[in-house]
């Protein structure tokens, strides 16, 4: 990395943060667009967690939505049945998802990358079955409605429900925190280990690095973010059902990562920002929107094989005059 790139990068990050925080305010009185913004932030959070595993360790956890579901159901049950505050229930839900994620990630310790991906698909369908089969906690496929918004108590100002633009701002902050966590992890020595494991786990093991430990940690953090997103989703949309967390949701989150650019920090954000709003914005084209979505994915894969960001980044670098070495796209950090 040359110094010439540092300034634009810092400026870009500052701009992005400002934009993320300003957007909910800008659309505050158009609740529909505000909702799309909120949903997009949730997907930024989710893709960050998915990216940590799929982009940096090469393990694609397609039971990701199931884990988000566990986070959501644990949180909602704690809040609605046990009367626990959302701010306590949400971390508990996230940890529950993380623990389940680590357990379900165990096959990954034995399975070579892609077999794990396919078997995680099966794990996901088992989780969906369980959600439907235990209506005591999930109310089956009728779902849980009227989930209350989290409340916030400010000293001297009393208690208020977190609604409207405040909720979207909260989601913006949560999404940024998630991206920050993933960025820190990948920038640390851990991150280097994770990539080493992705590239060649046998060799990495031979170098004396505890491959298992790092994979477990990656699973933990990734699933934690999945669960956290699930908890926020439940209380933001105010409704959850097993269908909110089915295999298509998993595949969609992963598609956003791949669409934007695996293994980069910005790529998944780009993917989420482009793809998450599509179903909402193409309301009037409801007969064609799935087709448009699919065509977009195919076109990007054909013409920008490393994802939108992963493919544009090297060009951007070249334009900025940085003497970036030609690397395989999709395998570098921003």
């Amino acid at each position: 990395m040359t110094d010439r790139l540092r300034v634009p990068r810092v400026a870009g990050v500052v701009l992005l943060v400002a934009l993320a925080l300003a957007l909910p305010v800008a659309v505050a009185d158009r609740r529909f667009y505000a909702f799309i913004v909120g949903i997009t932030f949730l997907h930024v959070l989710w893709t960050a967690g998915m990216n940590l595993l799929s982009g940096f360790t090469g393990l694609i956890p397609l039971m990701y939505a199931g884990l988000a579901g566990i986070g959501a159901y644990v949180t909602v049950n704690l809040v609605m049945s046990a009367g626990v505050s959302f701010w306590l229930a949400m971390p508990l839900g996230a940890v529950a998802a993380a623990v389940v994620g680590v357990v379900l990630g165990l096959p990954a310790l034995r399975l070579r990358g892609f077999y794990f991906t396919l078997s995680s698909l099966v794990i996901q369908s088992a989780l969906t079955l369980l959600f439907v089969y235990f209506p005591r906690f999930t109310q089956g496929d009728t779902g849980i409605s009227q989930i209350p918004a989290p409340t916030v108590t400010l000293p001297g100002l009393g208690t208020a429900a977190l609604t409207g633009v405040w909720f979207e701002e909260t989601l913006a902050v949560a999404a940024m925190l998630a991206v920050l966590v993933v960025w820190r992890v990948t920038r640390s020595r851990w991150g280097a280990y994770l990539v080493a494991i992705r590239e060649d786990d046998v060799l990495t093991e031979a170098l004396g690095i505890d491959v298992t430990r790092f994979r477990v940690i990656a699973f933990f953090i990734s699933s934690l973010l999945a669960g956290m997103g699930g908890a926020f989703y439940a209380h933001y949309v105010a409704f959850v059902s097993p269908r909110s967390f089915d295999v298509l949701t998993s595949l969609n989150i992963w598609l956003m990562v791949a669409f934007g650019g695996r293994g980069t920090i910005a790529g998944p954000i780009v993917g989420a920002v482009i793809l998450a709003p599509i179903p909402y914005l193409l309301q009037d084209l409801y007969l064609y929107k799935d087709i448009i979505y699919g065509v977009l994915i195919v076109l990007v894969t054909v013409f920008l094989p490393a994802g939108v960001w992963g493919s544009l980044l090297p060009r951007l670098r070249a334009r900025l005059g940085a003497a970036a070495p030609a690397r395989v796209p999709g395998k570098e950090f921003v």
Binding site: R31, F32, F35, Y233, S244, Y280, Q283
Partner: peptide, 13 residues
């Protein structure tokens, strides 16, 4: 889209 989240968004709009 036979999807609850989308139904909430639709209600909102």
């Amino acid at each position: 889209r036979t999807d609850p989240a989308q139904a909430v968004a639709a209600a909102r709009v």
